[in-house]
């Protein structure tokens, strides 16, 4: 089972803070699977055409996917995926 956490405005699209998923082997596959679950508004936020949107930050076990292989970053049972919008502070 893969654990998926949602934060900030992403929760507006999912109406829940976390979920679990199975059957995906990459981050992109997982997010596609979640699009089917949460609908077009979630999909419009997470994807731009065929690519994962620049408006989201996706972490796999705390590492940004930009540094772990991008959309093809493998995911497996026991992993934690976190999905954030672009945020900032200080």
């Amino acid at each position: 089972m893969i654990k998926v956490l949602f934060f900030a405005t992403i929760r507006d699209y999912t109406n829940e803070k976390e979920t679990t998923a199975e059957g995906a082997s990459s981050v992109e596959g997982l997010l596609r699977l979640l699009c089917a679950r949460y609908g077009p508004e979630f999909e419009a936020e997470v994807f731009d055409g065929g690519k994962i949107s620049d408006r989201v930050i996706v972490l796999v076990n705390g590492k940004h996917i930009a540094h772990t292989g991008g959309p093809l970053t493998p995911v497996k049972d026991g992993d934690t995926i976190a999905v954030f919008p672009i945020i900032g502070g200080g």
Binding site: F7, A8, I57, L59, G62, A82, F84, I87, G88, G89
Partner: peptide
Amino acid sequence: VLVNIINQ
């Protein structure tokens, strides 16, 4: 808003 991402 940073609490969760810095924690994650």
